[in-house]
Amino acid sequence: MNTETAPKKVHQGRNIKRLREMLGIKQESLAFDLGVTQSTVSDYEQKEQLEEKVLEKVSTALKVPVEAIKNMNEEATVNYINTFNDKVENSFLLNNNPINCNFNPIDKIVELYTEKEELYKQMLKDKDILIEKLSKK
């Protein structure tokens, strides 16, 4: 049998785990949303095939289509991650121009603080000069 043309078997439990991790959701949180225990979610993630009812509940909780759980494979995961990274990189564009900060925000804060300090010193000098002038009158 030619392994290149044979369809790869999809492990639905592993797909749930991948999607859950990509979305940054812990097993405990998913279990809470499903109304089951964390160990039940762990059991789901170990099973190759899950009941349609379970798939529907999990897909609703993860806010992904049931087909994503049923059909996701390694290649689809890589494509999803690459698409996500492209969207993140493109979100840093403003009118198709990249937003490049050419200063360090910390340096800017230090600069502003130093400027404030200098202004305060100047105000104290001005106050002393004014008091001196007023005391001479």
Rank of each mutant, 00 (worst) to 15 (best):
S39D: 05
D107P: 06
K53S: 12
V66R: 13
T83Q: 13
T5E: 09
A61T: 10
N96D: 14
F84Y: 08
L34K: 11
H11F: 01
I69Y: 00
L23G: 02
E132F: 03
N90E: 13
N100D: 06
I109W: 08
F32M: 13
E52Y: 09
G13H: 01
V64R: 07
K121P: 01
Y113R: 15
K136V: 11
P98A: 12
Q46W: 01
Y113W: 07
A31V: 01
K125T: 10
F32L: 15
V78P: 01
D128F: 09
V110I: 14
K17A: 07
E52N: 13
K108M: 09
E117N: 12
F92R: 13
K136C: 09
C101A: 14
L55D: 00
N104S: 11
H11S: 04
S39E: 03
V41S: 08
N2I: 00
E89P: 00
M1R: 12
I106T: 14
V41I: 07
K87Y: 05
V64P: 00
M123S: 15
L134H: 12
S91E: 07
Y80R: 05
S42E: 02
L30P: 08
I25R: 02
L134F: 09
N97M: 04
I106H: 05
I16N: 04
G24F: 02
S42I: 00
V54A: 05
S91M: 05
G13D: 07
A6H: 10
T114R: 11
K26M: 03
S59V: 11
E52Q: 11
D86N: 12
I81T: 02
E45Y: 04
Q122S: 14
E48N: 06
K26N: 00
M1P: 12
C101F: 14
I131N: 12
Q27E: 13
D86C: 03
V41E: 02
E118T: 14
K70M: 11
N15F: 02
Y113F: 10
E45D: 09
R20Q: 04
V36S: 08
N79W: 00
F92K: 15
S39M: 02
E21M: 10
N71I: 01
Y120M: 11
